[in-house]
């Protein structure tokens, strides 16, 4: 499915030995970085939104990105699967590798990048004309998968992974938008998982949800890290503290601090981080 485009160029540092799994899909070993970002800057027209960000985001971990609004955290997330290119007039500098492969190499198709790096949005957005089943399978179907047994298998698998299967298994033909808000968001997660991305980006996935639905999604994120690399943007620091392994703090387009979540919240090394996590600004 997710056919990585081969680039001859190998990064000199950050060797991420790629091991073939059963499906022949490259998977990084536990501790290797998923994303290796170096000196990455991004402009919207003349405005610099990201300034020299360097970060190594670990594979099969949950990395939270926090920071006050306008700090560039959503921009950074979107740069990870080149979604920012939907905005006309953007420009980047620096390098961004996923499992050793340059995502911005001229030969790389952004569509292929997005197959490898899935995304869940702030507001749940199931396609309104499609049933629950169609929503989950749309990514596979539109990419040419026709094998019905495989689709059926993937449907159940994705819905189970997003902890929605038991709630919807008896009415898969109902419209996706007939679900509750929290269920819709989990449906969107199932939809993103169905194409088997290597990374799942989440852009404030709970900000429109009530606490109960939020708890379910957070629990789900804990499950997902067993198989996927998860990067989550949140403005809720408790959420970052609860469900992430690493936390990155962005401020004014710069990466201020990045480290183990526990350490960041108990003993931040940077005064700005401390001010933010203790709620003194932002």
């Amino acid at each position: 499915m997710a056919t990585p485009v081969s680039t001859p160029e190998k990064p000199k540092t950050a060797p991420a030995p790629v091991q073939p799994e059963a499906g022949g899909k490259p998977v990084a070993p536990e501790e290797g970085p998923a994303f290796d970002v170096r000196d990455f800057s991004l402009w919207y027209g003349a405005r610099k939104a990201l300034d020299g960000v360097s970060i190594r985001i670990p594979a099969r971990r949950v990395t939270a990105i926090i920071g006050p609004s306008g700090c560039g955290k959503s921009t950074f997330l979107r740069a990870l699967n080149r979604m920012h290119e939907l905005t006309p007039g953007t420009r980047i500098e620096g390098s961004l590798h996923l499992f050793g492969e340059d995502l911005y190499a001229p030969s790389v198709d952004p569509v292929v990048v997005r197959r490898r790096v899935g995304m869940v949005f702030q507001k749940s957005n199931p396609f309104p004309t499609m049933s629950i089943e169609e929503n989950v399978l749309v990514g596979l179907r539109l990419n040419g998968v026709k094998d019905r047994a495989f689709l059926q298998h993937r449907l159940e698998q994705s819905l189970r992974m997003s902890a929605l299967w038991d709630e919807v298994k008896d009415h898969l033909k109902r419209p996706g938008i007939s679900l509750s808000g929290g269920q819709q968001q989990r449906l969107c997660i199932a939809r993103a998982l169905a194409v088997e991305p290597e990374v799942l980006l989440m852009d404030e996935p709970c900000s429109a949800l009530d606490p109960l639905a939020t708890a379910k999604i957070e629990e789900l994120i804990q499950q997902l890290r067993l198989r996927f690399t998860v990067v989550i943007v949140t403005h809720n620091m408790q959420q970052a503290a609860r469900c992430s392994d690493r936390t990155a703090f962005f401020y004014l387009g710069k990466l201020v601090e990045f480290g183990e979540t526990r350490g960041m919240f108990t003993n931040p090394s940077n005064p700005q981080t401390e001010a933010y996590v203790s709620g003194r600004f932002g």
Partner: peptide, 17 residues
Amino acid sequence: MRTVTTPDSPAPVKPTS
């Protein structure tokens, strides 16, 4: 270091595959 510029419309960026 390389500079990558997206065009002025959200159109497909580069021909690849």
